[in-house]
Design a protein around this nucleic acid. Structure first.
Lengths: 338, 338
DNA sequence: TTGAAAGCGGTACCAC
DNA sequence: GTGGTACCGCTTTCAA
């Protein structure tokens, strides 16, 4: 198990050729006579020679490795993005490694400082850092997904968060709701922030004034969804509708509603942002703002690989791709008017 | 963004010292005079020099990277194992990268052939390959988790699958069930196989003969759980109890039961292997065989790191650590007797 | 304490 | 076609 590794030199020696020639048959680009090629191939097989990828990478500065950095891998949204990305990367001969940062800036830093962070050919980043500075310091092909920081210096693949929240809220309004609550989190990133303002605008357009008491800001966690739904429903004047601004908040809300023995779509209307398992499970199924998760990964990976392959001189302007969202009406919103 | 990288040579030149000295202050082991150290540190900072980790790794043959290879990352079981592993690894200064193989041997191969597969210092493997040969060919510190292949040449951290299934089935028997079905999948690996035989033995000990019609073998997927539960419950003589042999099968079973408008713990008793979100959500909560998922990752990582640090000569006998499981009774099993 | 130089294991250019 | 060899950027003796 720990016998010293066989190197290209050993192969060369056994085959009575130079290392250059061995290298040639390995990479297959330069032409080598059929005889020597066969001979070398045979030796390689006999010696069970496995080339040292690191040595090669030192020379050509490529690892054929991509990374996708996400806050967490429990969340189906991220796994879907990852799935899309991996599919494209594989097709292009890149291996993708997944890195979870747990939404911790320090952990994110750690990755960038690690062996890998330094040696991937490019990456897709759903970042945790909030400062553009951090992103500008990334000196390799990078695509930001979902969250975008202005002046970060990288392309992005995003969705129309504003419109998603707007449509959801408008749906409530059209169905006659007036006491519409929103549970979200810190507005650290564009995504969360835009959702709030989408809600805000739809409220105003519906002639409603967002009530601060109906705006519950937690930390984008399931427990926030649970706790705030409890709070809201037990208040003097509970809302008739709740907009859960991400998938796990929605999960929490569903659990709270269950524990309060309320009926979704009857005692309380609910819309979630992004689909989730529980939302699909409960009856009626929860209306959600659906986004093209896998598609985001696909798009991002394509842009990334193009960037990697492209000439350095091809420095075009920054590009932001905005994908559309769709309100999937499943019946968790009760019609109050007529 | 693409200006040529600064190397240790540049630093040496600017500081008027040799590269050896720069290397020394970077690694901090050899002693360097305080004056030169300060000088070099200053230059490093000014030049914004970042050492090339790959070059260093070429020399010392270490990357401080670990990998954890799992079939998929959607499954909470795997993410829990990963979580445990990452915790330990981080404490020891290793960075962990997650690789999902989608249960596809080819994809698993791909990883091992990739840059990274070759250059991690060690790995934790929840393998997809079924042949011991494959595992024996892995020439670096490796710990198998959950699934174990005999003669693979590596240590393992496992759980007592047999006992888990045995306890579950016995619980059914004790509560007076006789028509007890089991939904599992191929017996490709020890884990699944042991679960079946645990069920088998408990049946026999309870004086019951396992009925082939009640043994549904799919592919360990949620859809199998769904489909077979439907099938079972619509058959001439439906079982009174179902043992779902993994967490996603259990999820499928729960959905089927819901769609059949049956009540868990009333019309049909259910036990799952390994916890899952839906099992916790439904009421009554589903009784499950719980296993120390995170603990498995912790254990495995500790063993792995010790192996990496240890002397090559310390080749002790192979070690298999078996962790215990526990039947968590939550009320999804109806008492039929007395 | 510091420097020179020999690798680590490949790749690729330049001769022949 | 094939061989010689100068790197890639760092670490680590060995001497001074």
């Amino acid at each position: 198990m720990f016998n010293k590794e066989i190197t290209i030199k050993d192969v060369a020696k056994h085959a009575n050729v130079s290392v250059a020639t061995v290298s040639r048959v390995m990479n297959g680009r330069d032409r080598v006579s059929d005889a020597t090629r066969k001979k070398i191939l045979k030796i390689i097989d006999e010696l069970n020679f496995v080339p040292n990828t690191m040595a090669a990478s030192m020379v050509n500065k490529k690892t054929k490795m991509l990374s996708v950095v996400v806050p967490e891998i429990q969340n189906p949204f991220y796994t879907a993005v990852i799935g899309g990305m991996v599919e494209v990367a594989k097709k292009e001969g890149f291996f993708t490694l997944v890195v979870a940062t747990n939404g911790d800036e320090a952990e994110e830093d750690e990755f960038f400082d690690s062996f890998l962070g330094k040696n991937v050919d490019g990456m897709i980043l759903i970042g945790t850092h909030k400062d553009a500075e951090f992103y500008r310091n990334i000196r390799k092909p990078t695509i930001l997904v979902d969250r975008y920081i202005n002046d970060c210096g990288h392309d992005g693949v995003l969705i129309d968060n504003f419109r998603g929240a707007y449509e959801a809220t408008r749906h409530f309004v059209e169905y006659g709701h007036e006491r519409i609550a929103i549970i979200d989190g810190e507005h650290d990133f564009n995504d969360g922030k835009d959702r709030y303002w989408g809600y805000h605008q739809a409220m105003h357009e519906g002639g409603l004034t967002p009530d601060p008491n109906y705006h519950k800001q937690g930390n984008w966690l399931e427990e926030d969804g649970y706790r705030f739904t409890m709070e809201l429903m037990r208040s003097e004047q509970p809302p008739t509708a709740i907009f859960a601004a991400n998938n796990v908040i929605c999960t929490g809300a569903i659990k709270a509603i269950r524990d309060l023995n309320l009926r979704i779509g009857e005692d309380i209307s609910l819309i979630g942002f992004d689909d989730n398992e529980l939302a699909q499970f409960v009856q009626p199924r929860v209306t959600v703002v659906s986004r093209p998760t896998r598609e985001m990964g696909l798009q991002a990976a394509e842009m990334l690989i193009q960037k990697i392959k492209g000439e350095p001189s091809e420095q075009t302007k920054l590009k932001k791709v905005i994908l559309d969202v769709e309100l999937m009406k499943y019946g968790s919103v009760k019609r109050l008017n007529k």
